[in-house]
């Protein structure tokens, strides 16, 4: 692709993505005292992550059976308070094993 055109796109894209992240982080620079907003922000990380995970994760692998198995393995590993790396690795291995099983057994 032509470089001049590419750089116009790149600047526009990177600019918007950066502004969306930067403006709130720079403007909200005092501790929030409002009880409602505080509680809201307390819940936000958990709801955002959950909404991004379900149901999208069930379509993240080649077969949704392997994705469901991988997800359940992750939940069990997380219930046993394994670290982030361990949970991620266990779920990937579970997907791999399930797909090997589905494809070759």
């Amino acid at each position: 692709m032509d470089n001049t055109k590419f750089f116009i796109y790149l600047i526009a894209m990177a600019g918007v993505t950066y502004l969306v992240r930067m403006v709130p982080l720079v403007l909200v620079n005092k501790p929030i005292k409002n009880k409602f907003i505080l509680s809201f922000l307390y819940y936000v990380p958990y709801t955002v992550l959950s909404v991004m995970t379900i149901p999208a994760c069930f379509y993240a692998t080649n077969s949704y059976i392997s994705a469901v198995v991988g997800f359940l393995v992750a939940v069990v590993a997380a219930l046993f308070k394994r670290s982030l790396v361990q949970v991620a690795v266990f779920s990937c291995v579970a997907v791999f094993v399930t797909e090997v099983f589905l494809n070759y057994v």
């Binding site: 995970t53 994705a67 992750a74 779920s91 990937c92």
Partner: peptide, 22 residues
């Protein structure tokens, strides 16, 4: 392909690891 597929769940596994214990 099968390796890429398995790795596709890594990010979600991390999210699960953060949310579930809480």
């Amino acid at each position: 392909d099968i390796v890429t597929s398995a790795l596709g769940l890594a990010i979600y596994g991390m999210f699960v690891a953060i949310v579930v214990p809480v």
